[in-house]
Structure formats: structure tokens, C-alpha cells
Amino acid sequence: MTAMPLPYYVSPEQMMKDKAEYARKGISRGRSIVTLEYRDGILLVAENPSTLLHKISEIYDRIAFAGVGKYNEFENLRIAGVRHADVKGYSYSRGDVTAKALANAYSQALGNIFTQDIKPFEVEVLVAEVADVNGSNNEIYHILYDGTIEDEKNYAAIGGQADEIRRFLKDNYHEGLTIEAAVQLGVRALNVTQNKTLTEKDLEVAVLDRTKERRKFRRIPPEALAQLLGSGG
């Protein structure tokens, strides 16, 4: 007679703790991303030396996405987001696609993966929606690896040294920034955690520009970025 091997018992508390620690470790290795509201929209700045693999992307007319952590995992989330948005916009109308619904979907998905799968996603994502012209507000959602969701005002930071960046922005952010001031502040915020000064070659920058027609998302190419960084700063 052979003894049935008993499965190891791990308490749910311990399991969640281990998973969270694992996910946080993965994320803390990633470089950070900041987002700031400025006068004409929302700015996103990522430390990313690659010009081909993006961390910041367009989801829909007024919605952008930024992800840190494991590339294949946030890339999956990004594509799922584009699909969610395009199907919704096609079935109803373009105006019915909202960051809130998308952020909720991400929260559900990440929450389910965190509790049900052996390996949680090692990602944190931001979903930003720029206000349309008639008076609604900008929205910024921050979704964590376990599905925790927060809505942020004025600025947000994700990634390895996000706490430090947030503290910096708390002291230095003010409303009504111009695009130049916002870009400079965003880069300074990322610099806080660095030994070197970041230049346009280390950065990926995009905006949701309220003044644009329909699709508000616009990448700022390195030449234009160098100019923004250079002016008055």
C-alpha cells in the first residue's frame, strides 16, 4: 500500500502575500512612468530608450494607456484594451467608449488573474482620458497587479520608484501648466530617481491633446521633445 502524497497546505493569506511580493518585485525592476494634467490635456512621460517597443499607446479617441513591468503582459492588456474600445465604439457610438469602463475591465481581469493563476501579472497600468471640450474633467486611473484601482488627480506615477516621484510631484505640481512646463516637470520627476540626467533619447513622450480633432493621442518625436526640453528650462 502506497501512501497518498498530501498536497502542501498554504494558507490563503500566505499565498496572496507571496504573489503580491512576487509581482511587486517584478514591477520594481521596471522604469517609471509619470502622467500630468496640463492646460490642453494630459501628458505621459516614460523612461524608455526603445523607439519601437512602446510603453505608452493610444487606445481610443480620448484614451491613452501606459504600462510598466513585464512587456508581454502589459502589451496583452493594451491589445485587449484596443479591442474592448473598438468593439464598444462600433456597437454603440464613439462617445460611449470611456476610460472608466476600460479601467474597470482591467481591474477585473488583473484581479481574476491574481487570485486564480499561479503567476500574477507583474504590471501596473495607467488609463487616462482627456476631457472633451464641453467641460467634463480629465480622468486618470491607476490599476495595480492585483486589480486594485485608484483614480488620480492632476498627476500619477507608476513603476519602480513611483513613491519617490509622487512625493516630488506633490511638492512641485501646480495646475494650468503649459506643455513645455509639463514636459520639463515630468522629466525632472523621472530624474529624481536617476543618477544621470535623462535626455530626449531616453524618453518616450505622448499627449492626449484636447485641441486635436477626434483622435487626441499624439506622440512627441525626439526632435520636438528636445525643443520642449530646451525652451526656458
Partner: peptide, 27 residues
């Protein structure tokens, strides 16, 4: 609208029409 979780399964087919065919053929 489909549950977005189910959309996660496929790797990057960039066609929207294929997406509808799989998930919302009535459309």
C-alpha cells in the same frame, strides 16, 4: 459587449472584422 477577459486569449490578430466574427458575429 463581450467579456474582455475572453479577448485576451488570441495573440495579435490586427483585424477588427475577424474579432467581430469570433466574438460578436451578430454584428
Amino acid at each position: 459587449m463581450d467579456d474582455p477577459l475572453r479577448l485576451f486569449g488570441e495573440s495579435g490578430n490586427p483585424s477588427f472584422i475577424d474579432l467581430l466574427r469570433c466574438h460578436s458575429p451578430h454584428m
